[in-house]
Nucleic acid binder design. Structure first.
Length: 829
RNA sequence: GCGGCGGUGGUGGAACGGUAGACACGACGGACUCAAAAUCCGUUGUCCGCAAGGACGUGAGGGUUCGAAUCCCUCUCGCCGCACCA
């Protein structure tokens, strides 16, 4: 026995130094004419971290998954791009600055240094020559350049509208950043404010964002969330005319077949015409009071579906285009200005909300769709009628009697011929509000000139540097507004006085294109060279948390589609495949949080057990897409496994000569079993890694191989050397240091330079197997049988086995099902 | 309400429609040790039985099948996203 022991603190830095000094994981861009002859590319990417404090356990899992994928692809013959960077702008650094006085730049740089130390200690196989950070002028210069290209195309615009305002963070937020009426960052309740802000026209891409989900390999849940968020519904836009004022009001409806059932008309309190309509009527004062109350109410309260319906008459009517009926107009807060046209037709018989409103205001309820076969007289006059499959129109003038689906089309066609409507599609998706009234972000490259108005900063003047300030406190406007010297400048068009835009960009803008920059990270003439990008795009495997299902993952898709339209790249989707890893919960099964005191930091874990054990553990803990609770004792189990593997390598290295560890010739007995187990493990681990992300079962298979090595200690050393080197080779993607160490101890070679091992099919089958003998589907016996035996022989073996005989006894054998090399099922009655 | 995912031992979890519970943790027993730790070996779904063996078992109920954790239907519970979206 050796008195040496497995010491990750000695092994791990040694291998990290090799990789660092030899720049093992760097991969250069190829000249275009060499790409075709090069090995196939694979772009493996984990979502970039937001550097705040030190990395947490979720980062460890994210990068352990990505690194395993990257290693596996390298060793299966791919040219792998695996870069990393930092999403460095953002609120936490700025809020920290307000609290502690430490400038955001300093805190961010310190945190980046801590992340860099951790990532190196974890032994990640990153191409550090491509490292980027979004707060560096060399990066955000191009964020501004992209903004200007979007601005030129009308995809970035400034508009006043009702926007979400977080009174705590003193800034506006995108729709996507409001969760249950609260600020995603700080949890404070969000208010609606009428403000002029910058938007990206993501809605122009709604259809493509929806349809192209079919072309990418993403988890169904993420695709479903995006579909939901985009919320496409098709129907019709129908025009209702207010004769008294001579104004047409279009409404959107998904149910044009119910047009004859409209008995009233409702507008949102924010609708710009509401006061104009009520002016001069007896309801004017009531309407004003109602609108004021509705506008001041908190969004969360107003949005509650269970809330009783309220509203006020406007004292006007509109004309229903299908039958000329005058419909009374109302203002009511259940109608949303942001969706459709801010006005709806009220069809109480076929819409629950309209039904509740009609009931509250004693308005008529007229059914116009009924199940086929029902007589008009059967249909209740006042009940809300749920939608069913087979329906036809009633009470619908010349459309009466038509099937509801055909009737819908007929009504739309008729409206269209009369100029009173058309087929239309509506979306839930809103444009992306990108401006923030905060300091620590990318400045928006726009100037306001007294004579020229809004002027984009010329490309040659980029970057617009973020100025240093002393006071980061937000006061409803960006702290940049106080940077006088920076603020006042000259108009590039007329040379007159101009003022800079003081809002900064949402950090999601920075992270919507970073994955493109890695491909050409040191280019200072353009954000990237389209030819260089073409050799890497799209990302073959993207890995990150599910919390980005709609924010980052939708914005990045939008950017890439816009870039494709500008001819800047040639793919339609950034992430061909996506893997969303589950969270690591605290030992108590709850989400880790400082307030719960259940946070496990990776740093002491790595110091105590080594990076290999920590990485293996987070992969072994369960299926990587699921949440799992941290368990120290399970971590010790994984550490034990690596220790056992290392000890095998150490012992063999002491007793045998270093050299190639190949499958021995004609092994027998224990040696044969060991060699078979090794090939079985190769086969299993390969299948688990090849697109399956089944790291937990892959590691389990290597554990089985190691266990087999301990059980068959007396096998000859050639077989043991082969099996141990194979275990080291297979464990390398998960535990690169000990994998490299054991492989080198035995063979003298570098495991990452070796091709991924191939299982010999001949070694995957034994000459005999255990035949499972069932009677009526229940196992009654197991007998040895020769592999590849004909069905008749297996049937005979099974029927003559004692267990089957005992259970068939006295019953008639009706049928025998034979599954070759596996089982026989005797059906007896 | 709409959409998505899930329910398997004491625990985390395995299982192309073909031996349910791989692997790991924990527990129990043994070896080594003066002892402990570490390490190594073994047992470990539940129930009946001394044993051989048997019965029961994947949220509930039904169905398809020679055979169902797996496929289909109904229900139930849980998690996630959206939600007065016309």
């Amino acid at each position: 026995m050796s008195d040496r022991r497995y010491d990750p603190s000695e092994i791990e830095p040694r291998w990290q130094a090799v990789w660092e000094s030899e720049r093992t994981w760097e991969v250069p861009n190829l000249p275009p004419d060499e790409v075709a002859a090069a090995p196939p590319k694979s772009y493996v990417l984990e979502m970039l971290p937001y550097p705040s404090g030190e990395p947490h356990i979720g980062h460890l899992k994210n990068y352990a998954v990505g690194d395993a994928v990257a290693h596996f692809r390298r060793r299966t013959g791919h040219r792998v791009l695996h870069p990393l960077g930092y999403d460095a702008f953002g609120l936490p650094a700025e809020n920290n600055a307000i609290k502690t006085g430490i400038p955001p730049r300093q805190a961010t740089d310190e945190s980046i240094a801590a992340f860099q130390r951790a990532f190196r200690a974890w032994g990640l196989s990153i191409d550090w020559s491509r490292e980027i950070s979004s707060h560096e002028p060399g990066y955000y210069r191009w964020t501004q350049w992209i903004f200007l290209r979007l601005f030129e195309r009308g995809l970035a615009y400034r508009k006043e509208s009702a926007v979400n305002w977080c009174p705590n963070d003193q800034t506006v937020l995108a729709n996507e950043q409001v969760i249950d009426g609260r600020c995603e960052r700080c949890g404070h309740e969000v208010e609606l404010r009428q403000l002029e802000q910058w938007f990206f026209r993501i809605t122009a891409y709604a259809d493509r964002l929806l349809d192209d989900l079919e072309t990418i390999r993403w988890p169904e849940s993420v695709k479903a969330q995006q579909r939901n968020w985009i919320g496409r519904s098709s129907g019709a836009e129908v025009t209702f005319r207010c004769e008294a004022l001579g104004i047409d009001y279009p409404v959107f409806t998904t149910r044009p077949d119910t047009l004859f059932g409209a008995t009233f008309f409702v507008m949102a309190p924010e609708h710009p015409d509401v006061m104009r309509l009520a002016a001069g009527t007896e309801h004017e004062a009531d309407v004003r009071a109602y609108v004021n109350r509705a506008l001041s109410e908190r969004a969360a309260d107003r949005g509650a579906a269970e809330k009783p319906k309220t509203g006020v008459p406007l004292g006007r009517t509109v004309t229903n285009p299908v039958n000329g009926e005058p419909l009374p107009m109302y203002v009511a807060d259940y109608v949303l200005m942001e969706y459709g046209t801010g006005a709806v037709m009220g069809v109480p018989a076929h819409d629950e909300r309209d039904h509740a409103f009609a009931t509250a205001f004693a308005l008529p309820i007229r059914p116009v769709v009924a199940p086929s076969g029902a007589e008009a007289s059967d249909v209740s006059e006042r009940a809300f009628t749920a939608h069913t499959d087979d329906e036809r129109l009633i009470n619908s003038g010349r459309f009466t009697g038509m099937d509801a689906v055909a009737g819908r089309e007929a009504i739309v066609d008729w409206l269209e011929s009369r100029g009173a409507g058309r087929a239309a599609v509506s979306y839930r998706l809103r444009d992306w509000l990108l401006s923030r009234q905060r300091y620590w972000g990318c400045p928006i490259p726009i100037l306001y000139c007294e004579s020229c108005g809004m002027v984009p900063v010329p490309d040659g003047d980029l970057p617009v540097l973020l100025p240093e300030v002393d006071d980061y406190q937000p006061r409803g406007r960006s702290p940049l507004a106080a940077a006088d010297e920076w603020l006042h400048t000259r108009c590039p068009r007329c040379g007159g006085a101009a003022r800079r835009e003081t809002d900064t960009m949402d950090t999601f803008v920075d992270s919507s294109w970073y994955f493109l920059r890695y491909c050409d990270a040191r280019n200072d003439a353009a954000p990237w060279d389209p030819e260089v990008l073409a050799q890497w795009a799209p990302i073959d495997q993207y890995i990150g948390g599910i919390e980005h299902a709609i924010l980052h993952l939708l914005y990045a898709r939008f950017f890439v589609k816009a870039f494709a339209d500008m001819g800047l790249l040639s793919v339609q989707e950034p992430f061909a495949a996506l893997f969303t890893q589950g969270m690591i919960l605290g030992p108590d099964g709850h989400k880790m949080s400082k307030s719960r005191g259940n946070v496990i930091s990776p740093t002491p874990i790595v110091e105590r057990f080594g990076a290999d054990a920590a990485r293996c553990y987070v992969l072994f803990i369960g299926p990587p897409d699921q949440d799992a609770a941290w368990s120290e004792t399970s971590l010790e189990g994984v550490h034990r496994f690596l220790t056992r593997l290392w000890r095998l390598g150490d012992e063999l290295a002491q007793t045998t000569a270093r050299g190639p560890a190949e499958t021995p010739e004609n092994p027998t007995g224990d040696a044969l079993e060991l060699v078979r187990k090794a090939h079985w493990a190769i086969d299993k681990v390969t299948a688990d890694l090849d697109g399956r992300f089944s790291f937990n079962t892959a590691i389990a298979a290597i554990m089985e191989l190691v266990n087999e090595l301990y059980r068959r200690r007396d096998a000859d050393s050639g077989a043991r050397r082969f099996a141990t080197a194979t275990a080291a080779s297979l464990v390398f993607p998960f535990a690169p240091h000990v994998g490299a160490e054991v492989y080198e101890l035995l063979t003298g070679d570098r495991v990452w330079e070796e091709p991924w091992p191939a299982a010999d099919p001949a070694m995957l089958v034994a000459e005999s197997f255990e035949l499972v003998c069932q009677v009526n589907g229940r196992v009654r016996d197991r007998v040895p049988a020769p592999t590849g035996a004909p069905r008749e022989e297996l049937e005979r073996l099974a029927l003559s086995s004692a267990g089957v005989q005992a259970h068939v006894n006295g019953h008639e054998v009706v049928k025998v099902v034979v599954v070759p090399d596996k089982l026989v099922n005797v059906v007896a009655r």
